[in-house]
Every structure is written in structure tokens, then in C-alpha cells.
């Protein structure tokens, strides 16, 4: 396996090289190259339409890239279905709109994939699910249906659901954008705890306080490209690009 040479290959859990993506004629990703190491927390920011969602969705192939290479956990993303399924089992994803399964109870939402994909016996899966619900702070909601929970609780269930597959990498696409301020805090709390547990995290988020506190790097997208990639301190205090300053002045 090839890497960019400066880092230990085993530690490079996500490698992207010159990734391009088009929607029809629209060039959404225009040569994205970056490397994420095991245990790193990377927060992605950028203006609306800059390709942040598109980028993190290419990592578990919810979107297909058309040029360049993406290597996740040592597996190259190609059209090979086995590779894709293997990577998806290894990568958890949390969406802005939660996407819990409304016809299943909270517990069943969490145990579904472990029992169906990993063939875990259901009592064992339920044990794992209860532990995870404990971890995200809502074990008492196990038998409810998603619609009976608040937005913050739903998002925490969604995180537990993703963790139940014991992924090595977690992707978050604006996990708090659909939430009221009080609920944002409870979700960020869970994410912070996750970051401290050495999980590799790629999160699109405009919660700059959170980013400053837990991120190892902040990456800024603009027009389908990475325009800045710096540790939080430098990113906020002396960004190299005018566009970053402009963007920060807009959202702060």
C-alpha cells in the first residue's frame, strides 16, 4: 500500500488522493487530497454547497467518486461490492436528519445491523445496545419508538446505532444542525466523550467551540477543494487564507 511517505502507513486510516466527483456536469469535488490518522479528530467546515457532505459521503461510498483514490482502513474503494460492504461495516455514520428507522423500537434500531450483518445472537446484541444507550445517557428509552423521543435523544440513539457495529471510524454530517440549543449540548457531550476514547472522527460541524476543544485538525472546504487544514489554534488565530478569515467573520 502506498502512502504519502511522511507517516507510518499503519496509522493512516483514511487516505484520499486527488478525489474528484461530478453531479452531472457540476464539479462538486475538485481534487481533494488528505490523510487522516488513527485516533485523529478532524472537523470540516466551509460554506454551504462547498462539498463537505459530498466528501464525507464518498468515504463510505454513499456517493461514488469518479477520479482519484480513497483507501479506508487499508481497503481501496472500488466498485467491488465486497469492499464497499466491508468498509461500511467499519465506518459508522451519523446524519443531520438522524434517519432512525421509525417502524422499529430504539433497541431494535441499534441491534438490527449487529444481528443481521455481524450475525450476533440477539441477546448479546441487546446487551451491547443497552450498554451503548447507557453510554449516550438514555437507557430508559430503549423500548420507545423514535418519534416518541426528542431530537437530541434521537441523535444520541443514532450515534449508539452506529457504534453498535464497533466501527473504527465515525463520520458525522452536521449532527447538531437540526437541533435546539439545549439539545446540541447533549449531543456534543457524547461526541466529546467519543473523541476522548481514541475513535477516529471526521465531523462536518459549525460548532466552533467544540472544534476548538476536541479537534486535532480543522479542514475548510470551499468550492469543492480543501483551502485550509490546520490545528485549531493556528486555524483560528492565524489562518493562511483570506477566505478562511472571511468565512470565520461570517459565522462568528
Amino acid at each position: 500500500m502506498t502512502t504519502n511517505g511522511t507517516t507510518d502507513p499503519v496509522e493512516d486510516i483514511i487516505v484520499c488522493r486527488d478525489v474528484h466527483k461530478w453531479y452531472g456536469n457540476f464539479h462538486a469535488l475538485r481534487g481533494v487530497s488528505t490523510t487522516v490518522q488513527k485516533g485523529e479528530v478532524v472537523v470540516i467546515i466551509g460554506p454551504s454547497g462547498s462539498g463537505k457532505s459530498t466528501f464525507i459521503r464518498t468515504i463510505n461510498r454513499l456517493e461514488q467518486h469518479q477520479r482519484g483514490d480513497i483507501i479506508v482502513d487499508g481497503i481501496e474503494l472500488t466498485n467491488d461490492v465486497r469492499n464497499i460492504d466491508a468498509i461500511r461495516r467499519d465506518v459508522g455514520m451519523v446524519f443531520q436528519s438522524f434517519n432512525l428507522f421509525p417502524h422499529l423500537t430504539v433497541l431494535r434500531n441499534i441491534t438490527l445491523a449487529p444481528t443481521k450483518v455481524r450475525h450476533m445472537p440477539s441477546h448479546e446484541a441487546e446487551g451491547v445496545a443497552m450498554e451503548l444507550l447507557e453510554r449516550v445517557g438514555i437507557p430508559e428509552q430503549a423500548d420507545k419508538y423514535p418519534a416518541q423521543l426528542s431530537g437530541g435523544q434521537q441523535q444520541r440513539v443514532a450515534i449508539a446505532r452506529a457504534l453498535a457495529m464497533q466501527p473504527n471510524i465515525m463520520l458525522f454530517d452536521e449532527p447538531t444542525s437540526a437541533l435546539d440549543p439545549e439539545m446540541i449540548k447533549e449531543v456534543l457531550e457524547v461526541m466529546r466523550e467519543l473523541a476522548e476514547s481514541q475513535m477516529t472522527i471526521l465531523a462536518v460541524s459549525h460548532e466552533l467551540g467544540f472544534a476548538r476543544e476536541v479537534a486535532d485538525r480543522i479542514v475548510m472546504f470551499d468550492e469543492g477543494q480543501i483551502v485550509e487544514d490546520l490545528p485549531p489554534d493556528e486555524f483560528f488565530n492565524n489562518p493562511r487564507h483570506e477566505r478562511v478569515k472571511h468565512f470565520l467573520s461570517q459565522i462568528l
Partner: peptide
């Protein structure tokens, strides 16, 4: 999408 992201075929 959520189901596919969990690795369900």
C-alpha cells in the same frame, strides 16, 4: 442510506 451505511446489503 442509513441502512446501507450500517453495512446492510
Amino acid at each position: 442510506e442509513a441502512a446501507r451505511a450500517l453495512g446492510l446489503p
